[in-house]
């Protein structure tokens, strides 16, 4: 679509913009490279700084070798699918319940008064603290693990949805009503799309925190999963594998968050371009 802004922009400015963009990308990549280099130096020299020691920390080269070994082995796929299905089930449940409750709480004072206080009380409880109770509450360890990733994802989604609904411009609602919208149309035509960007931010953060809770969840049981793999590597003193597990979780968490954000931008073209403009 040829927007007005595109037509107006001057080529010279665009080249300048591209150069600046390339510069930023270079800086970002070098930042990661420097971190890896520092890690390499600290681990190969077995640095000991008193409060923190790198004596038992594996070096990047060792981690890379361990990662290659894991990738080539058959175990990898089952670890990945186990973790992903847990994270996505937990996330999906959190999305449905978080958005549902958030819309209700954001729209109705009654729902806010009755539903929000208990949720606020549960919110600060960390995932680890849920382990014993979730083992007692759920018939299978698989379900308890899903529940723990669910608790991680629920609150960011819930709070962003509430915020999104409450921040809807009253004038937009008034305009819709003056144009003939009833309660239901105001909800579907104004509240939902107006809150959507905030909801997607919550989903993206929630996806990250679901992965964040994965190790905690997979400490419960099982023989599969990246979180399990990380924890098991520690107990059998395979230190390089710990870092492989950590990095995998980081990468997958980041990747799926980006995926959610991309999906949001696809569904909300007006929002993506508004952000790019400002």
């Amino acid at each position: 679509m040829g927007s007005i802004t595109e037509a107006d922009s001057i080529p010279a400015e665009r080249i300048d913009l591209n150069r600046r963009e390339a510069g930023r990308r270079l800086r970002r990549v070098s930042s990661i490279a420097i971190c890896v280099l520092l890690w390499h130096l600290a681990s190969t020299r077995h640095m000991d700084l008193g409060v923190i020691t790198f004596q038992n920390v594996p070096s990047p080269a060792e981690v890379l070798a361990a990662a290659r070994e894991l990738l080539e082995s058959q175990k990898m796929l089952s670890h990945l699918t186990a973790s992903m299905s847990r994270v996505f089930s937990g996330f999906l449940g959190a999305a449905v319940i978080g958005i549902g409750l958030g819309l209700m709480i954001g729209r109705s004072r009654f729902a806010e008064d009755t539903l929000l206080p208990p949720l606020e009380m549960l919110r600060p409880i960390p995932a680890v603290a849920w382990i014993p109770l979730s083992i007692l509450m759920f018939p299978s360890s698989e379900l308890s693990m899903i529940f723990i990733t669910f608790t991680g994802a629920l609150f960011p989604i819930l709070l962003s949805t509430i915020h999104g609904v409450e921040a809807v411009d009253a004038r937009l609602i008034a305009s819709a009503r003056s144009l003939g919208s009833g309660r239901r149309a105001v909800f579907t035509e104004v509240i939902l799309p107006a809150a959507a960007p905030s909801i997607f931010t919550g989903l993206s953060i929630g996806m990250g925190t679901a992965w964040f809770c994965l190790v905690t969840a997979e400490m419960i049981a099982g023989q599969f999963g990246i979180g399990y793999y990380t924890w098991a590597s520690y107990t059998i003193q395979n230190y390089a594998d710990i870092v492989v597990g950590m990095l995998l979780i980081g990468l997958l968490g980041m990747g799926s968050s980006v995926l959610v954000k991309k999906l949001g931008n696809r569904l909300m073209p007006w929002h993506a371009s508004e952000i790019r403009k400002s």
Partner: peptide, 11 residues
């Protein structure tokens, strides 16, 4: 009703 500005539905 027509407001001063920014009351079109952005989406």
């Amino acid at each position: 009703l027509v407001f001063q500005q920014h009351t079109l539905f952005p989406w």
